[in-house]
Write a protein that binds this DNA or RNA. Structure first.
Length: 399
DNA sequence: GTCAATTCACATGAAAGAGACCACGGTCTAGTG
DNA sequence: CTAGACCGTGGTCTCTTTCATGTGAATTGACGA
């Protein structure tokens, strides 16, 4: 038992963290650096809502990790504080990307209803029924003005049609006692380009673009958070700068930078270092990448894994470029061997496209003239992770 | 040699089916007074 | 008489198949120099 005690004791003694929470992705700090302008802007647009006035709908853009969600939520919570006494205003936040929670029209409505205190079954009802119930609950509520913050709506609209947004913007005309304001948040800058113009004009009455942080701003943010999060003198010279540089390269993603710093801290801690050194950042970078990929590989459905395994094998065997057809025939063989139903080529083609999206492979559509048109596929996974990935696949496929 | 037509091997789209999940309303059953 | 069990119908949702259409350039073959 003494051994364990030692381990537990030494953990607290050696810990580099004062408060790890602060570096976690979901932590929202009191002051948000370098976003004062944006926050003010949002606030000024939404401010009249405190008086129960319907304001413009707002649309917020920016790549991941630029503080969109944070800023909007910050304004929202300030508004909530102010509105708490008067009960004229109600604000709900919904992340539309959450799988199985809010990635269809039905589920978004259901989720909003739930947040407003109603309840709908997870399935079984016609969508328009849910819609009616939504209207009903809005009309019945005490508040007369609603702000719905829909995070990452680009994801949903890609899946369902923009019809949903149209309905949403038209909602106001169907409501008598209540008005709603929609705040949309999107990672995709070109989101509104391929959307019905009617929807576009009403949805983005106001627009706001969040530019990526530059390396200096990232440094600043990291420095602040690091001070609160780590014990004094833990962070070596240059670590912050390196973190910021890494993240700046990834389109100024602050979340990424914070992750990097946190993981670097964990690594240093595990190695019983008293300081986080620059090499830990590199290690952290690798680890994050590695974990991400391995996680994807592991959790992918069986058919996807089979396709992926086919790709791995073929890449290894041919060392060169491989094409959809090669993969499909290898995959067919593989299915026979494992006694699994063979999917159609159409489907496999889609699966390949998804791998491309996930960043496991690089697929490029090329035309080989008389030899037809196909995808040229390269692996986007580093060598050292490949082995491990393959192991996982072999294990889970029972090869 | 030049040029348009052809042709390949898929990509990409649209629609629809299968099967899992579920709500709702009606009917049947058994238990209760 | 009533609560609960048990259908049948009609929804959503994901994964998949089927059918249809699109497409970029190597190849072909006709043409004219």
């Amino acid at each position: 038992m003494g051994d364990l005690d030692n381990i537990f004791d030494s953990v607290s003694k050696r810990s580099l963290f004062k408060n790890k929470q602060i570096l976690q992705a979901n932590y929202s700090p009191e002051d948000i650096s370098h976003r004062e302008k944006e926050i003010k802007h949002i606030a000024s647009i939404l401010a009249p809502s405190l008086l129960g006035e319907k304001t413009s709908n707002l649309f917020v853009y920016g790549v991941t990790g630029t503080g969109k969600t944070l800023s909007v939520q910050h304004v929202a919570s300030e508004l909530k504080k102010r509105a708490a006494s008067s009960r004229v205003l109600r604000i709900e936040y919904l992340n539309c990307k959450l799988k199985k929670v809010a990635d269809t029209e039905y589920r978004i409505l259901a989720e909003l209803i739930k947040k407003l205190g109603g309840s709908v079954p997870a399935t079984g009802l016609p969508t328009d029924q849910v819609y009616l119930r939504f209207l009903e609950i809005l009309e019945k509520s005490e508040e007369k003005l609603f702000i719905f913050i829909l995070d990452e709506i680009d994801q949903v609209v890609k899946k369902i049609s923009d019809n949903f947004l149209y309905n949403l913007t038209r909602l106001n005309s169907e409501l008598n006692n209540v008005q709603i304001i929609i705040v949309g948040i999107s990672n995709d800058l070109r989101f509104l380009d391929n959307i019905d113009p009617r929807v576009r004009s009403s949805l983005s009455e106001e627009e706001l673009v969040f530019p990526p942080y530059n390396a200096l701003q990232l440094q600043d943010i990291l420095k602040k958070r690091a001070e609160e999060s780590f014990k004094p003198k833990v962070v070596s010279e240059g670590v912050i700068a390196k973190c910021a540089a890494f993240a700046a390269r990834e389109h100024g993603d602050a979340r990424r930078a914070l992750d990097l710093l946190r993981v670097a801290g964990e690594i240093a801690e595990r190695e019983s270092n008293y300081k986080i050194k620059i090499k830990h950042i590199d290690q952290a970078n690798n680890k994050i990448e590695r974990d991400k990929i391995l996680d994807i590989v592991e959790t992918e459905p069986k058919q996807f894994q089979l396709v992926l395994y086919s790709i791995f094998r073929l890449i290894k065997k041919t060392k060169g470029n491989i094409f959809t057809g090669d993969i499909y025939s290898y995959y067919q063989e593989l299915c026979k061997r494992v006694k699994v139903d063979v999917l159609t080529q159409r489907r496999v083609s889609d699966i390949l496209a998804e791998f491309d999206m996930l960043g496991l492979i690089n697929a490029r559509v090329i035309s080989k003239g008389r030899q037809g048109r196909t995808r040229e596929i390269k692996l986007a996974i580093p060598e050292n992770i490949l082995e491990k990935s393959e192991e996982i696949l072999v294990g889970s496929l029972g090869l």
